[in-house]
């Protein structure tokens, strides 16, 4: 479960405070795919960075699985992220000098998980990349890169997958395929996906939808 209690996040610009989220409180149960929509600059990415512990709120508390992450040390946050969060980025962000298999293996080996190799290969097979294990990112298409990124996010079986506009850098056709894969994999692996998008059509396909508007997060019908 994710819980935001009176979370405020603002940025300093010179002497001015620019609010992004203001006194936000909401709870999110583990339940399928949740969309977060909002206009550009509304604070969607800030929301993800707060949720993943990469950034702290100006005030308020954030709880993930009843664990307060706002007071965790950098080391504890690192462990928290490794175990509970998987992230899919708009720009894929694969390590260029690692093969597809190695990119997926990395989070598993950070956690020193067992049968890492088999699990990595299985998940790459699941996202349809059989036969592309030893290819470097530069040898893969955009869609393939995002599949590797999805596989990497899912491979440690985290509680939450945070997906930041995962189809934003792909052509519509490939984007659809990737989103379908994301949804399918989430269902197969029974994981919660928090999808940040500005695509309302895509948001409509999700199990729940929240909108960031006027510095608040509101549930949409």
């Amino acid at each position: 479960m994710i819980e935001f209690n009176n979370v405020t996040k603002s940025f300093k610009q010179g002497s001015r405070d620019i609010p992004v989220l203001s006194d936000v409180s909401f709870k999110l149960k583990e339940s399928g795919i949740v969309a977060i929509v909002g206009k550009s600059g509304s604070g969607k990415s800030t929301f993800l960075s707060l949720l993943s512990g990469l950034d702290g709120p100006t005030s308020g508390d954030i709880l993930v699985d009843n664990q307060k992450i706002t007071g965790l040390s950098e080391k504890e946050l690192t462990i928290f992220r490794a175990k509970k969060i998987g992230i899919v980025f708009q720009n894929f962000h694969l390590i260029d000098h690692f093969t597809a298999l190695e990119n997926v293996l990395l989070p598993l080996e950070i956690l020193e998980g067992e049968n890492a190799m088999e699990r990595a290969k299985d998940i790459l097979n699941l996202v349809g990349l059989e036969g592309r294990f030893d290819h470097f990112p530069s040898q893969l298409s955009g869609g393939e890169k995002q599949r590797v990124a999805i596989a990497r996010a899912y491979v440690t079986n985290p509680h939450f997958i945070l997906a930041d506009e995962p189809s934003g850098n792909l052509d519509p056709e490939t984007g659809d395929v990737v989103m379908e894969l994301l949804f399918k994999t989430a269902k197969e692996l029974k994981q919660t996906v928090i999808l940040v998008t500005h695509d309302h059509e895509l948001a409509a396909k999700c199990d729940e939808c929240y909108e960031i508007k006027n510095h608040k997060i509101v549930k949409r019908a």
């Binding site: 993943s52 990469l54 950098e74 080391k75 690192t78 462990i79 992220r81 490794a82 175990k83 969060i85 992230i87 962000h93 390590i95 260029d96 990395l106 989070p107 950070i110 956690l111 990497r152």
Partner: peptide
């Protein structure tokens, strides 16, 4: 920098 942050996001400690 992206690689460094990425490693951090994936759970690698600063020391590693």
């Amino acid at each position: 920098q992206y690689d460094l942050v990425l490693q951090k996001v994936l759970g690698m400690g600063e020391k590693s």
